[in-house]
Simulated assay, not measured.
Amino acid sequence: MTDEVFLHPGEFCFAEAGTRISTLLGSCVSVCLWHPGRRIGGMCHYLLPGSHRGDGRYAGGAFDLFLRELDRTGTEPWQYHTKLFGGGAQLLEGRVAAANVAAGLALLERHSFTLLTRDVGGTGARFLRFDLDTGDVWVRRNSGRGLGVAS
Rank of each mutant, 00 (worst) to 15 (best):
I21Y: 00
L24Y: 14
L25H: 06
G26Y: 09
G26I: 12
C28Q: 09
C28R: 08
C28A: 12
V31C: 10
W34R: 06
P36K: 00
R38V: 01
G41K: 00
C44Y: 04
Y46W: 09
L47S: 10
S51Q: 11
H52T: 15
R53M: 09
D55K: 01
G56Q: 03
Y58M: 11
G61H: 05
A62P: 02
A62W: 05
F63K: 01
F63Q: 02
F63S: 00
D64K: 00
L70C: 11
G74F: 05
G74M: 08
P77E: 10
W78P: 12
H81Y: 10
H81E: 13
T82F: 05
L84G: 03
F85T: 01
F85H: 01
G87I: 03
G88C: 02
Q90A: 14
Q90S: 12
L91N: 13
V96S: 09
A97E: 01
A97V: 02
A98I: 03
G104L: 04
G104S: 06
E109H: 10
E109N: 11
H111D: 12
F113W: 07
F113K: 06
T114M: 13
L115W: 00
L116G: 13
R118N: 11
T123E: 15
F127W: 13
F130R: 08
F130H: 05
L132P: 05
D133I: 08
T134H: 07
T134M: 04
